[in-house]
Design a protein around this nucleic acid. Sequence first.
DNA 1: CTTGCATTAGACCGACCGGTCAACTATACT
DNA 2: AGTATAGTTGACCGGTCGGTCTAATGCAAG
Lengths: 202, 202
Amino acid sequence: MSNTNDTRERIVKVAKSRFHNRSYADVGIKEICDMASIQKGSFYHFFPSKRDLVLAVIDEFAADWAYGFVAEAFDPSLPPMERIDYLIDAAYFWQRSSKELNGHIPGCLFGNLALEISTQDDILRAKLNAVFSSAKQRFKGTLDEAIEQGVITPLDSELTAEAMLAYLEGMILLAKAENDPEVIYRLGSALKNIRIELNTLI
Amino acid sequence: MSNTNDTRERIVKVAKSRFHNRSYADVGIKEICDMASIQKGSFYHFFPSKRDLVLAVIDEFAADWAYGFVAEAFDPSLPPMERIDYLIDAAYFWQRSSKELNGHIPGCLFGNLALEISTQDDILRAKLNAVFSSAKQRFKGTLDEAIEQGVITPLDSELTAEAMLAYLEGMILLAKAENDPEVIYRLGSALKNIRIELNTLI
DNA sequence: CTTGCATTAGACCGACCGGTCAACTATACT
DNA sequence: AGTATAGTTGACCGGTCGGTCTAATGCAAG
């Protein structure tokens, strides 16, 4: 019951930052243990494997994200399409401040991991896919609301949501390749204009 | 002068496929040597380091791409905006056939590498950025042509080209995370509708 | 035939990888 | 106080990592 022990939290905290700023393969257990000031035995007391650690990292990161600035961006009291602008802003400032700290844009942890290990580990891939799925739902909800309010003309909100997520991830990818957060700033405006029409034919 | 010797080519060929289908960190020199039926000494005769190998792989892949189906897609005899549809088609069929072969969508080599190592190696990052830059130019040229022909209304072709590239990479990322090439098929139609207007204000 | 260079073979290097283990300590419950 | 359990230590494992080195080849020009 007591929670005097924060070892597990320290491990995940260190791992979150390392995995986000580097890559899954490049960050070793030893390094994580050193930074968390523990020994390997302790690590393997809490996590049966490196994969289980990154699974926990994904969970925590997704939770941080969902209850952090994404919750702010998708604030129901904001007009729906403004939430998308807000999201872009948040992404921009986050990447920019990360660069100021570490010299490099870390990009999106989920996108990074997805491209690194999707072909190598189906369980991790499925987990990341689930994260993307819930992100998609955020977009879809926003779009549905905007349609309902008559702010935008009807469209295929499911597909458009997926397209928006794709565009967001793509922007972040290019920004990372250029190591320049301004990419997000200058491309961001197109996000909320992406549309995939309802297929009424046939 | 003679070219009876194809060792270097075999190395790069093996490495191209391995790096594309897995990741930079996950593919070792030893494995590449084994698959190319050579010894490490031979490898290091041609490449001073693993990084130099992946640099060569990027070059070759970009060349394959540029003179392969991208050259087809951006065929000047096609109406400009149709080239974009053609490109989506090509990407879709490529990923689909790769999946049939290996069980997994490999995604885009450049995108994969960019997210894996951008924060760790600025030389590689710059190289990948250059590849993206030239891809951007393809889009821009197409857009400029379409504007000239009056097929689309004027827009910021530089930015729109970058946005299109972002969307393309983002689609492929999601497709890889879902391990489903159909993502490209169903999201592809939005690519050619992406627009960033000319900033005439201020 | 010889010299010289490009290529290849394969043993070897220290470092590090993810993971295991037995022993020890701290804590909580009875 | 006694016992069980959770947490921790640090040495240790086999294997692999990227990379080096020396010696042996293949081959071409003189």
